[in-house]
Amino acid sequence: MDFLITLVNGLSLGGIYAMIALGYTMVYGIAKMLNFAHGDIIMVGGYTILLFLPINPVLAIVAAIVFCVIVGIVVEKCAYKPLRGSSPLAVLITAIGVSTLLQSLAQVLFGSAPKQQMVDLGALKIGELSIGYSTIITLVCSIAVMVALNLFVKYTKTGRAMVAVSEDKGAAQLMGINVNFIIMITFAIGSALAALAGLFYFLKIQTMTTTFGALPGIKAFTAAVIGGIGSIPGAMVGGLLLGVIECIAQSIPALSPYTDAIEFSILIIILLVKPTGLLGKKRREKV
């Protein structure tokens, strides 16, 4: 029975990782860059929620999504778009710069002291079992989001254009696809997912700091690489897998101090066995 709870907790945490990992993996697939400021969008979402929560919880969620989407698009337009076509290293360094900028701005606005806000949604009790409602909501919402995203990519014109751009930018342009627009949409979707992840991660740890997004960000990046960076199903599988592993490791007293070590070891092992990640495709080099 304990194991069942651990599993639910793990899938719920994994859902958060998966939502963030989707942002990393989609941006990588389409803009061919690692957006290391993605974790900080989660933090932006967290603070927005904290700010609007006293007014109305629903308003807080909507505000967080809208604001994160705006920040995501502005960052892409101002910081990454001018560098399109330049060396990957320049883009990577810029992303790290954006990350520092967002964290510093948050520090100026909200101070460096952690802000706590208790949100207790109660718990579902079935006999001996007790699972927090926030855990269940996180799990249900993250699965719903993932299903919706898959449907979007598979069945909408814009979604299929995203697949086309990720595969071959030049050929996509020859179809009349505006690649810059598709990249903007990708950042917008990634940022909206990050806002939701920020909400659920906040429900979990109930403390806001300026580095709120750093840990889930790096875990989700790991999940994206485990699943195969660039692959949408890969990010989902990687995220859920990493969440479950983390919760199982924490539930075993002998292993719990080594949770992070175990997670990153699994990353190393998977990359040794399958360098493209679990669902990653080997890209043919074009001549």
């Binding site: 014109k157 299929r160 254009a161 697949v163 086309a164 595969e167 071959d168 030049g170 050929a171 996509a172 020859l174 179809m175 009349g176 696809i177 495709k281």
Partner: peptide
């Protein structure tokens, strides 16, 4: 050729009608 290898034949043709 540069077809979209991950999309189906039908989806490739529909990409051609994007405009």
């Amino acid at each position: 050729r540069r077809i979209f290898s991950e999309l189906t034949v039908y989806e490739n043709l529909m990409m051609g009608a994007y405009t």
